[in-house]
Nucleic acid binder design. Structure first.
Lengths: 353, 353
DNA sequence: CTGTTAGCGCGTTCAC
DNA sequence: GTGAACGCGCTAACAG
């Protein structure tokens, strides 16, 4: 009951090509795998003609099944909405291209269920390795991966209890750099704004580094503000509370220029965007004059808004991740490595004197 | 610390499970495929135990090879950097999830070579269908797809000479809506800014619709400005030329409020961002006071900048695309369909009176 | 140089 | 109910 001439003309198989070229499957296989030196010029020509005529394309699934490696690697992204992720992705793609892998991109969309589901799916497709930008909550869901399972490398953040290669930003260095910049520009009240950070290593490190950096500047006051971006109500509430304090601080500054200037330090791009939107909505396009904003991450709109940022070496992060993975896939047995890349300060109007 | 046995403990196969459960492969297969009614409760229990014990995961590749369908569909994205694409992607993912497909996401990064390469790769992996946001240049590269090849549905733009299902924005309606809005708000000099549009159907349609809409308003002057975003030099040059004219128009308006007000109409998000960055750089944060900006596409920063936009039903576009594809995969034989979804006007400060 | 043979992991008759 | 045997498309010995 197969459809006569319908949709799928059934692709040609290696046997079809062999028959068409009047030879055996082996020669075709050899041709496909570049063992050209072992083929007589005429046979080779016949094969080429047959392939052309049948528009033959080798079936990756089948060859993967046979040789045990399908050149597939999984890339699990926590949130593609975050420009950071897309940039990392570009590095991953470039490296895959260069190393002959095909990245299977999965998007968890910030949902833990998705993360688990995709991880499961990836192992089911027998990917040779995964590079994971984890939601970070659950070491449990990463079970099939890492140590005992398929090779894995983490991006941006590590996961408690999971020992694997990791590549990300040098949070300590970046945060220190940013903090020092703010202090040097004369800001003496610094508010570090961050999403809930207990369970996300990168956020945790940044928050800690911020306070550690401040120990060098006794005259500067810093505090941490936690922003829950996921919950609109709670977000609005926190922002409003922030407003009151900010207003007071700014009023004091307006009254007497000797009062310390205030700066907001966003732990990442999404936080910075939330802050900018709120401030803009509340104070209009000149909000920048009232409060400085600095952010780790350098999204496209940062230049538009004129905020100072720490740009992450996103492309390199992705590229290195694949290189690490490649080594593991090749059987590298060294113990887990961390690769911390430096951030770059992009100074813009926001923190100018 | 290091792996006890060598790198890959070789995953369990169906045979392993059969042996472990003291039965044949057939029963395992049946269990996996939900034909539970045909299994004695005890056998079933033994199978479950064996699977659990061996942490068995069926090999998708192998089962795909056997049954001829691997539940893989390809998603070829022209530019993940464009928030539009990511949003569409979310719809695609949701639909795939619902329909039991696994999307293989490929990112052409605006390179025609990549597009061709990925398309080739996708057919090589025997995806059951592809949804393509084409760069649009080459009908040639889409040869393996559509009519004779694997089912395909186009997103956002069609490709000349390729008949397939397509789903995207109702460009005519959206453009008319935006144009009317500008006119009603009192703008009488409208500049439609767009990337080179000859070869991209959606841009072409928007440009045409813009001028068609203007025919209804004889008092309004409109013109098209082409912006080449890829080439930094040319971009700067065009923008500078634009400035001169804009300055003149604005000066005239300042001098006599009777002179028609000027508005920029960006054909899509990337264009809008380029314009906004440039204007901001040139006129400071208050550039909005000098010239209005409206854009098709509603990226995150639009609210921050306060520009009026036409929001595309991106999620639905992605979702519908997969639904179309699903029908084709299921053997639907109807002729190519177009699905044009309406845009929504989001009015912001930029075009307020 | 070239063809034959035996599986890779799985689903599917078709007998028992 | 259950299992043996065959084949999906391809590669890898192993002969000629």
């Amino acid at each position: 009951m197969n459809t006569p001439t319908s949709g799928a003309p059934r692709r040609a198989t290696i046997s079809d090509v062999a028959r068409e070229a009047g030879t055996g499957k082996t020669s075709i296989s050899r041709y496909l795998n570049g063992e050209l030196s072992v083929l007589s010029p005429q046979l080779r020509a016949r094969i080429e003609a047959a392939i052309e005529r049948l528009d033959y394309q080798p079936n990756q699934m089948a060859r993967g099944l046979k040789r045990g490696r399908n050149r597939l690697i999984g890339m699990l992204v926590a949130d593609l909405t975050n420009p950071y992720s897309v940039e990392v992705l570009q590095g991953v793609e470039a490296a895959c291209h260069a190393l002959g892998y095909m990245p299977l991109i999965c998007h968890a969309a910030n949902e833990v269920d998705m993360e688990r589901r995709f991880l499961q799916l990836l192992t089911t497709y027998r990917v040779e390795g995964v590079i994971v930008n984890a939601l970070g909550v659950s070491e449990e869901t990463l079970r099939p991966v890492g140590g005992g399972g398929i090779p894995a490398v983490l991006v941006d953040r590590s996961v408690d209890g999971l020992v694997t290669d990791m590549v990300g930003l040098d949070n300590e260095g970046a945060t220190t750099l940013a903090t020092r910049h703010l202090v040097e520009r004369g800001f003496e009240r610094l508010w570090f704004v961050v999403q809930p950070f207990e369970h996300i290593s990168s956020r945790r490190q940044r928050e800690a580094a911020f306070h550690r950096a401040l120990e060098q500047y006794p005259q500067v006051k810093g505090r941490t503000v936690v922003l829950e971006l996921g919950d609109a109500d709670e977000l609005a509430q926190t922002l409003n509370a922030l407003d009151d304090e900010l207003d007071a601080a700014i009023a004091a500054f307006d009254a007497s220029p000797n009062v310390p200037r205030v700066a907001l330090f966003a732990a990442n791009g999404p936080v910075a965007l939330a802050l900018a939107r709120h401030l803009n909505q509340r104070h209009g396009p000149n909000w920048q004059k009232r409060v400085a904003l600095l952010s780790i991450d350098d999204p496209e709109w940062a230049e538009l808004a004129g905020i100072t940022t720490i740009r992450q070496p996103t492309y390199d992060i992705g590229y290195r991740a694949v290189e690490f993975l490649h080594q593991r896939i090749d059987g590298e047995q060294t113990s887990a490595r961390d690769c911390l890349l430096p951030g770059e300060l992009i100074e813009r109007a926001s923190t100018a004197r």
